[in-house]
Simulated scan of single mutants.
Amino acid sequence: MKIFQAYPTKKAGNEIIFRFENDESANKFMATYQLFKQTLVEIQVRDDREISAQQRKFIYALFRDISNWSGDMPEYIKQLFKMWFEEWRDVDEFSLRDAEKSVAAELITFMLDFVAEHDVPLKFKPLDALEPDDIKHWEYMSLINGFDVIDGSKPVELAHGEHAVGMGRDRDAISNVGNTVFSLSHAHHVELHRVGLPEFKSKYHINGVLVTSEILRELESRGRRFGTVRE
């Protein structure tokens, strides 16, 4: 696959005009297009924002924590995860010095999935470095894997959000589909009730996980039930 760079300049209905850097680039594109008799061109939007200092710091902290957990050297962990990530994303080698910000965010989520699935202890709070869309995924992983969404600690309690179970109701007899829940340590669960849901969500930039029937089945397959939810 050959890659060309062009910039959208005008939209008219469902048609968009692209501008190439110069005539030579445009001519090369057309020559390639006609040579292979293509009828469809795949367009990828490039994120021109470079990796942030916070993202880079977070990634190297992950390398160190996984290194401490596995007993391997941090540099080995770095090269290993770069290789795994490149294979998973099907991309050529990239550098952490000038990676796109969106690619760095993908790498962080990729590594945090490994952390969640292998119960790797962390020395920092992932929420401090995640983008909003990645926070949503981290909340889901914390619920499914049973660790505190804020600091990764165990054990946890499943706390209800907007739709509380209420006192005196049989938690095993009701459906939690449509309820919002949080995976929290006892201390953070107590904090939620002490400060109230709006302040808690604002402080940690989390929204909870909306329970679906698929999530219930996944939790039950792991031996976890909503009957253990505390109010």
Rank of each mutant, 00 (worst) to 15 (best):
F110Y: 13
Y204V: 04
E214D: 13
E75S: 13
L127G: 06
I150W: 05
M141W: 11
G166K: 02
F85L: 05
A6W: 01
F124L: 12
F29Q: 06
F124M: 12
I59S: 07
D98W: 11
H189I: 02
I144W: 04
H160T: 10
F18M: 13
Q5P: 00
L107K: 03
D172K: 06
S52P: 05
N27H: 08
S52L: 09
V190K: 14
S185V: 01
L130S: 07
I51E: 01
D72Q: 11
F18D: 05
E191K: 12
I17Y: 13
K125W: 14
E218P: 00
E15H: 03
G152V: 10
D65C: 05
K28A: 15
E214Y: 10
E24F: 06
L197N: 05
T9V: 15
K10A: 04
H205E: 12
F94V: 04
H163F: 14
G71Q: 06
R217D: 13
F58M: 10
K125E: 14
Y33S: 08
S95H: 12
E218Q: 15
H189S: 07
T9G: 03
K11G: 00
D48M: 09
S67V: 08
F85D: 02
I3V: 15
I51W: 01
T180M: 02
Q55Y: 09
A26P: 00
E86W: 01
V45L: 12
G161K: 07
S183P: 11
R224I: 12
G146L: 03
M83G: 02
G196P: 08
L216W: 01
N27S: 09
W69V: 00
K28M: 08
M83K: 14
K125M: 13
Q79S: 08
N179I: 00
W88K: 11
R217A: 13
V45I: 13
L80M: 11
M83Y: 10
Y76W: 10
E214F: 09
A12E: 15
R89Y: 04
R230E: 15
K123H: 12
L184G: 05
A116L: 09
K125S: 12
F36M: 07
G166P: 06
R89I: 02
P121Y: 11
E15Q: 11
A12H: 02
G178K: 09
Y76A: 10
V181Y: 01
Y140L: 14
L158T: 10
E220I: 02
F200H: 05
K201E: 15
A6F: 04
Y60H: 13
Q54W: 06
G208D: 07
V156R: 05
H188V: 00
T212A: 06
V195P: 04
L219S: 05
D65N: 15
L127H: 07
A187D: 13
